[in-house]
């Protein structure tokens, strides 16, 4: 795993990846469930509960991932 990404096993659900954004105001965790569903946990500074949780199917996650990676794609 790359530097700044931390893995936590969640038995029966899947794995959680905590991403170090090097930022003091936001951080994200991505849960990859065994059925392919992704949960994107978004935390803001000074809050112990996530400010947003986005549930995505594998397909949707790929689209978002492609956008984030800067890969152009058209539908």
């Amino acid at each position: 795993m790359g530097k700044g990404i931390y893995v936590q096993e969640l038995p029966g659900i899947g794995k959680r990846y905590d991403v170090d954004l090097g930022s003091n105001t936001q951080r994200i965790s991505v849960v990859v469930r065994r059925d392919g569903t992704r949960d994107l946990y978004v935390f803001a500074a000074g809050k112990d509960d996530p400010v947003a949780v986005i549930e995505m199917s594998e397909e949707q996650a790929r689209k978002v991932g492609a956008l984030l990676a800067g890969t152009y794609f058209s539908e």
Binding site: G12, I13, R16, D18, S29, D39, Y41
Partner: peptide, 19 residues
């Protein structure tokens, strides 16, 4: 999953117990 507790410290314990 619904209570958004997947990042909590007790969650792996809970999951381990039910498994």
């Amino acid at each position: 999953i619904e209570f958004r507790r997947l990042a909590n410290a007790e969650t792996p314990v809970i999951l381990g117990i039910i498994v």
